[in-house]
C-alpha cells in the first residue's frame, strides 16, 4: 500500500514539466565553445597563407621583368651545356695522342728501374723468420737450427 503511494507520488513529481532551455543560448554558447576550440584547421590555414605569401612575393619580384629572368636562365643553361661538352672532348684528345718513340720507352724503363732501386735501398731489410719444422719436438728443432 505504502509502496503504491510512493510510486504514485514519484510519478506525480516526475510528470511535472520542466522549463525549456532558452533558444537564444544555443548560438551564443556554441560560438563561445567554437572560439575556444584549438582547431587544427587554423594551423593548416596559417601554413597555406605562409606559402601563398612566399609565392606572391616571388611573383612580385619575377613578374615585372619576365624576359630578363628568361635570358638569365638561358645563359645558365648555355654555361652548363658548354661545361659538359668540354669534359667530353678532353678524353678523346688523350686517346688521339701519338705513341712514344722506342728511345723514349727505353729511357722511361731506365728511369723506372733506377727509381725501383732507390726505393729498394731505402727500405729496411727485414730478416726472414725461420720456418717451423712441423712434426718434430722443440728440442730437435733447435738442433736443426744449430747444425
Amino acid at each position: 500500500m505504502m509502496n503504491e503511494e510512493n510510486k504514485q507520488f514519484e510519478q506525480r513529481l516526475s510528470q511535472q514539466p520542466v522549463k525549456e532551455v532558452p533558444p537564444v543560448w544555443r548560438a551564443e554558447i556554441l560560438a563561445a565553445a567554437r572560439a575556444a576550440q584549438p582547431a587544427p584547421q587554423v594551423a593548416r590555414v596559417a601554413k597555406h597563407s605562409f606559402l601563398s605569401t612566399i609565392n606572391a612575393q616571388l611573383s612580385a619580384v619575377l613578374w615585372p621583368h619576365p624576359k630578363a629572368w628568361a635570358g638569365l636562365a638561358a645563359v645558365w643553361v648555355g654555361i652548363i651545356v658548354l661545361n659538359v661538352s668540354t669534359q667530353d672532348r678532353a678524353v678523346p684528345r688523350m686517346e688521339r695522342a701519338e705513341p712514344a718513340s722506342p728511345e723514349m720507352v727505353v729511357e722511361l724503363r731506365k728511369q723506372q728501374k733506377l727509381y725501383a732501386e732507390l726505393m729498394g735501398m731505402n727500405e729496411p731489410r727485414v730478416a726472414e723468420r725461420p720456418k717451423d719444422v712441423p712434426g718434430r719436438p722443440r728440442t730437435q728443432r733447435v738442433e736443426v737450427l744449430v747444425g
Binding site: K19, V21, P22, W25, E28, I29, L30, A32, A33, R34, A36, Q37, P38
Partner: peptide, 24 residues
C-alpha cells in the same frame, strides 16, 4: 543546473563553461 543554482544567469554561465571545456 537551474535546480542547483536557482539562478538563470549562473545556469547560462555554467552551461557555457561545460561546453567550452569540452571544446577546448
Amino acid at each position: 543546473l537551474l535546480n542547483l543554482t536557482r539562478n538563470e544567469a549562473d545556469t547560462r554561465d555554467l552551461l557555457q563553461e561545460v561546453f567550452v571545456k569540452i571544446a577546448r
